[in-house]
């Protein structure tokens, strides 16, 4: 009797799991094919997480992960108590935010305008010209920017002096408050052309019948841009925004390190530079891991946040 009940209870479950198994079995080719890639993901993205242990230790290389003493949350406490950390955090958010905003608006704008260009030759030429800086390294870009803005016969100062706008040449690179703007503009110049590529591709895929229908309805160029081109771009733009927000804290330090100098240190130091200065360059790996863990957590929160907002307003979302 008892055995009977047990059997009756388990039967539906068994059916269910058998159903799942059958489904899996019927897709075994696909599953097998994905194994190597999941393997790669695991080896390169999950195995290294083992190293996060360091953040809770006073890690020293001779002792290794197994031998270093555990210190609990000391590293994080130190991090959160350091005023320079907040400064770096502020700078990172400010510069990433400015680059993100400027990059989005300008790239979409440029894509819309290029899409309207009638002459193919003109369009291609402009595209090529705006792509070029993307392939130039930050070292070169920063030298060009510093030269352009130099108070010692730099072209911009010569121009301003020629126009009679300034008496004394302006030392742009020494102005603390201008650093964010200079950095954003330099980044915009470097990456603008490159980031229009996706938008142009999307615009090329818009069904021409929609434009024709709009024309029949009497829509002009601007109306078509506003009501057809722009809405077609939005799903892609949202997707890119979500991805970009996830990267906000790890935009690298190259540009800030190369453009920055001792005058603007308070405004140019970003998290990655902070991590480099206070952990790698002085051999304090635990602190570096703590910083990178902090970054990961904030990034996940940001991505989830933007994703939720995108879902609410009915745009495309990643997760």
């Amino acid at each position: 009797m008892q055995a009977h009940t047990v059997k009756r209870q388990t039967t539906p479950r068994a059916y269910k799991s058998r159903g799942r198994l059958r489904k899996l079995a019927s897709q075994y080719q696909l599953i097998l094919m994905s194994v190597p890639f999941i393997g790669v993901l695991f080896v390169f993205h999950y195995l290294p997480l083992w190293g996060w242990l360091m953040a809770f230790q006073k890690y020293s290389i001779p002792k290794g992960i197994m031998g270093s003493p555990f210190v609990g949350f000391d590293q994080f406490a130190e991090l959160l108590a350091d005023s320079r950390f907040y400064q770096a955090l502020r700078n990172t958010f400010a510069m990433s935010g400015m680059s993100l905003a400027a990059g989005f608006v300008c790239a979409i704008g440029l894509a819309l305008l290029l899409n309207e260009a009638r002459s193919m030759f003109f369009k291609r030429t402009i595209q090529t010209i705006v792509y070029i800086p993307h392939f130039v390294s930050w070292v070169v870009i920063s030298n060009i920017v510093i030269y352009l803005l130099s108070p010692d016969h730099g072209p911009l100062n010569e121009l301003l002096a020629g126009l009679g706008a300034v008496g004394e040449p302006i030392y742009f690179m020494s102005k603390e408050k201008w650093f964010w703007v200079i950095h954003t503009l330099a980044g915009l110049w470097k990456e603008l052309g490159w980031s229009t590529i996706i938008y142009l591709a999307v615009l090329a895929g818009v069904n021409p019948e929609m434009y024709e229908a709009a024309e029949v309805d009497g829509a002009g160029r601007f109306a078509k841009m506003r009501h057809i081109s722009l809405p077609s771009l939005l799903p892609t733009a949202t997707l890119l925004l979500i991805l970009a927000v996830g990267q906000m804290l790890s935009t690298g330090y190259e540009s800030q390190m190369l453009l920055g100098n001792s005058f603007v240190m308070d405004y140019s130091q970003v998290l990655d530079l902070y991590a480099l200065d206070y952990s790698l360059s002085i051999g304090d790996y635990s602190y570096g891991v703590a910083i990178s863990m902090f970054k990961s957590v904030v990034s996940i929160v940001l991505v989830l946040g933007v994703n939720t907002i995108a879902k609410r307003v009915g745009q495309s979302h990643v997760l």
Partner: peptide, 16 residues
């Protein structure tokens, strides 16, 4: 004193 005393890259100084 050079105006760019603190920010001049070494190649730029060679140019000057």
């Amino acid at each position: 004193l050079d105006k760019e005393f603190f920010t001049l890259k070494s190649e730029a100084l060679v140019k000057k």
